[in-house]
Design a binder for these strands. Structure first.
Length: 373
RNA sequence: GUGGGUGUAGCUCAACUGGUUAGAGCACUGGGUUGUGGCCCCAGAGGCUGCCGGUUCAAGUCCGGUCACUCACC
């Protein structure tokens, strides 16, 4: 996969770049909306396109269980199946096996688990995870890994990290350099030496990009930022750097500042469905009764369809009534915010004003949201 | 009109033979949510137990009256 750096911020590790896939170009730093089951929940591909989404995330675990990766392959691959012709990154299923399924056995060869949908038994290994991702037609595949829980003993973290490295070798082998790109995932929990050892071993194998896994799994913000700040700059300058499953707007800003290029997180979409909306002045809980008579938009500084067209009072009504449109409008807003946030950071880095932009961003986030209107 | 039943939080209902500060679910109010089960979790507010009187150390609970709703029968 071709990746080029376009600009560097001179006062931080932040950089802009772009990578190419057969489904198009992606400008970094980028946020990838999560489309677990072949859909970014509640939105159509056209709406995603209008929001400026350049790449989305699909999921091995979910699509393998339902409707089945082989069925998707027969139907022409995930892009065709879901009507999205831009790039797709697929998670390997490792995280979901550990977070969603009932695990029966973890062994050297892989993980035996029971489906969270119907309890059926399955076995996922590096080889099957890569095969599934190839069946899906993924542009960027992830190595099968274990997301270490937190807190975790050093011993378990080391053992788990070593196994993830061996699984990464097998993922690389199974991938065979054909099809989409393949990223390795650095594990090792909060232990610096383990993270460094893991990275060293992954570099020896060689991947198209490198991800940092097992962050925001329960550790403090300080610990997460700490890991991001010393680990991200160690990842190869010439390859995309991806922090998996992160995060809040602040996490993205700090990640970019540390030199991270890619993020994915369910937060903007899931929180949208749960009534928490992100704005340039800080988060808004649309269910709060103070919005019941508010005629103004969620965010006066937002240009999204939801903010141009609807009042907070209406959005609160839709939310408290559990109306389907609530999910759609809230998701449109939050994704617009996240994607706009990334676009603003790309612009600030390219114009070498990232630090000033960051200061302004935090100053605005601290503003108390308006009560009435 | 006669006989029976029921009245407890906004709603649906708990509270063993009278015994700590009358509880729960939903709704409501606030907080949480990080490689997704449209969930879930935490906290809070909310009660002249229909009304009046009586018995008792003590009444949502027992007794009398009264009002409301409801069922059956004239």
């Amino acid at each position: 996969m071709k990746f080029e750096i376009l600009s560097h911020d001179t006062r931080s590790k932040a950089r802009t770049g772009r990578f190419q896939t057969v489904h198009g170009t992606v400008e970094t730093p980028i946020f990838m909306p999560v489309g677990t089951a072949g859909t970014v929940k509640s939105l159509s591909p056209d709406e995603l396109d209008l929001l400026g989404a350049q790449i989305i995330l699909g999921n091995t675990y979910h699509l393998y269980l339902r409707p089945g990766d082989e069925r998707i392959a027969r139907l022409g691959g995930l892009h065709s199946f879901m009507g999205w012709d831009r790039p797709i990154l697929t998670d390997s299923g490792g995280f979901q096996v550990f977070s969603l399924a009932r695990i029966n056995r973890i062994e050297e060869n892989g993980v035996e688990f029971q489906s969270h949908i119907d309890g059926s038994r399955h076995f996922l290994s590096p080889e099957t995870a890569v095969r599934i991702q190839k069946n899906l037609g993924s542009d960027i595949m992830m190595c099968f890994d274990e997301c270490t829980p937190y807190p975790v003993t050093r011993e378990y973290a080391a053992q788990s990290m070593e196994r993830t490295v061996r699984w990464s070798e097998r993922s690389r082998e199974a991938h065979g350099g054909k099809g989409g790109a393949l990223f390795g995932i650095v594990q090792g929990s909060v232990f610096k030496d383990l993270r460094e050892q893991c990275l060293e071993k992954l570099l020896a194998i060689g991947f198209d990009g490198y991800a940092i896994g097992s962050l925001s799994v329960g550790e403090s913000k300080e610990e997460m930022f700490s890991v991001m700040r010393w680990l991200a700059p160690l990842l190869p300058e010439s390859r995309p750097r991806y922090v998996m499953g992160v995060g809040t707007p602040e996490d993205l800003v700090e990640g970019v500042r540390a030199g991270v290029d890619m993020f994915d997180c369910v937060m903007p979409t899931r929180n949208a469905r749960n009534g928490m909306l992100f704005t340039w002045r800080g988060p808004v809980q649309i269910k709060n009764s103070k919005h019941a008579d508010a005629s103004g938009p969620i965010d006066p500084d937002c240009g999204c369809y939801t903010c141009r067209r609807f009042s907070r009072a209406y959005l609160r009504h839709l939310f408290t009534s559990h109306e389907l449109l609530s999910y759609r409008l809230n998701t449109i807003h939050n994704l617009h915010f996240y994607l706009d946030l990334m676009a603003q950071m790309r612009y600030a880095i390219a114009s070498n004003t990232f630090e000033e932009w960051r200061t302004g961003f935090y100053a605005a986030q601290a503003n108390v949201e308006p009560d009435g209107e």
